[in-house]
Design a protein around this nucleic acid. Structure first.
Lengths: 207, 207, 207, 207
DNA sequence: GATGAATGAGGGTTCATTCAT
DNA sequence: GATGAATGAACCCTCATTCAT
């Protein structure tokens, strides 16, 4: 066995395998057997470390939330000029969603299940207070500097920023089919990145 | 049985029950037994009319696509002033998504499965040619009138319009939890509607 | 419909389709739907003409028994020199089995079911009295002429004659695999025909 | 459950029950539920040990092939006088088929399915090389001794030997009906045994 | 004679989970 | 901490047959 009594590593391998499996097949479609096999672990160990499939799903989801928020904090948006900061957040969000498609499918799954896992999580809300405050700060500074229009709610804005990329990427299979267009080519992705940034920056601009 | 030899009605009842079931539980989580029970039909009939679960799912998806596109065409956008037309499309899209949450979950399911059903559909692409052309016409007229900026791709814009509402509504459970805010109260919904319209209209406005 | 109120033809098409289906898949594996489809008939008609699947199977079996016995009678064995007559029967039996593989699988199916259909048939035993008497006559004449050894039972001999070809052809898939040899090439079939004839004629020859 | 954590025994019980079920009802007619019940095992275990019904069928078939070939090798034919050896093989084959009717029905089933299981088997062809070589040796020695005629192919001869018993036993239900004779009485079986031996030995005898 | 629609029992298979070691 | 063996409920789907017209 790969698995020579290193509990920390075993746990980690299981979580990584589970994240990939849940991302690929959703919560309902994920198979406990496949997770165990990919983790090179005994199936019993999933239950030992994570109690049951639902709890394992929550762990995977928390792990990905923690990851995106940590990456976001590294942007250091507080110290940038407001328009630059906003541009940076838009670009980061797009890029993160593009490079971490598993995050999108995990969120879809969780919402299909009406958020019943995340509702039990203490960690997840904690992670998000800074995000809102940071964005609020950017908006306030931009408004004060006269570059952003007034009255924009940071939560609403964040949802718009995320929505721009989310819908494009999460629904890329149906969109490609209904619009008969390759959305994932290098040039299509570059164009969408430009479009997203233009949309958001124009939308908040002071008239 | 309720089922008094009216094939048209039987088929319709099955499709309606299936749409609801798929919307609620996703493709994988949907149960053929439940669909049959809700349709007050024999389980065998699902296979008689729709061959298998996948094909039933496709039929449900096609049905909802047809529905939104038909409603959209009734907006009569071609004959309106460009900004009015765009505003109307944004408001319609938001309202449709809000009133037809099943459409969102159907799309999520289909994309989780990499669009493998819609790819086999001839009907779905056909439904969407007019949408793009209509939006292209609005943009062209707005540009000519000097109210919209130039160079906006109607497909990209449509994805942004839909994305605004989609992400908010589809991910409302996780968003409510991470932002600790009720997103579905009457006032929250009204605010989001205003926000969406403001975002899109500002974003396309000529500077 | 192909099927314009010619009951005789409808019945015949169903029986032909059933014979093929039973031959290909066995009784248990045969599908009533496929039979109806291939017969270009409504499924209900199978039941109208043949009462149920078992009875349809019996009809198919009786049909094939009638066919081989009729062909056999045309050999006109009574008026031939004994060795010639026997040779002719051996060759005919081989050729018939080769050209009518459906007969072999029908028999296999019936025997898997312990002959429960044929047991109810009056027609089948009737067809076979002449066969035994003909063969008995040949043996008697051959014995009298001093070319066949004495004491051969025509029933036992017929079983040997049929067995030579039956096992080779009915089990050709497993035999080909265990002996790693193509049993169905033109040359292999020709060789088996010679072998069969040689075996039987040598076996009955007066020492 | 009887099933006290002895995997070897569990596997064996399943295989034994499956062999009987497949023999009695054929592959298509066999029921996984009945196999599990007779094996006093959970239905899930069949899939745990044998992956699916087809694979279980192959395992049963391989098991029976191994059994007959092992019994055959115990005849020690290489060291016997050619006519004695041949007689012994004929008698053994008859007796084996008589005492192991399940082998015949397994073969019938496999051939109904065009040998699609055995084709995937490595073990089965391996088991059969010695059989052919042994029979070839017997024929060669008999020819050299002047008791057998020349030019007999061991594969063809084996098929004849097996065919003698196979057709009689496998088709006993239809044969009993068409010839109106009890083929399974003690005396009938004894007579057939004599007939088989006489047929084969006379057929190969040097004229 | 002929049709499409409907039925209920059960088909093989897969599931998350737990037991004994 | 770790393992392979075992469980029973439920999954999607298919079957031969019959009903109403």
């Amino acid at each position: 066995m790969v698995n020579s009594r290193d509990p920390e590593r075993t746990r980690h391998r299981i979580l990584a395998a589970a994240t990939e499996e849940f991302a690929r097949y959703g919560l309902g479609g994920a198979r406990v057997d496949r997770i165990a096999r990919r983790a090179a672990a005994n199936k019993r160990m999933l239950y030992y470390y994570f109690r049951d499939k639902d709890n394992l799903f929550l762990a995977a989801l928390e792990g990905r939330y923690a990851h995106i928020r940590a990456a976001e904090r590294e942007l250091d948006l507080e110290h940038l000029e407001p328009r630059i900061a906003l541009k940076r957040l838009v670009e980061f969000t797009w890029r993160y969603f593009l490079e971490h498609p598993e995050f999108l499918t995990l969120l879809n799954s969780e919402n299909l299940h009406k958020g019943r896992h995340v509702r039990r999580s203490r960690r997840v809300p904690e992670m998000h207070s800074t995000l809102v405050e940071t964005l609020r700060g950017i908006l306030r500074r931009g408004e004060r500097d006269g570059v952003f229009r007034a009255g924009i709610d940071p939560v609403q804005l964040y949802i718009s920023i995320a929505g721009e990329g989310y819908f494009y990427l999460s629904n890329r299979y149906t969109l490609a089919q209904i619009f008969k267009r390759d959305l994932m080519s290098r040039s299509a992705l570059a164009e969408r990145a430009r479009h997203n940034t233009a949309m958001i920056l124009n939308a908040v601009r002071r008239p």
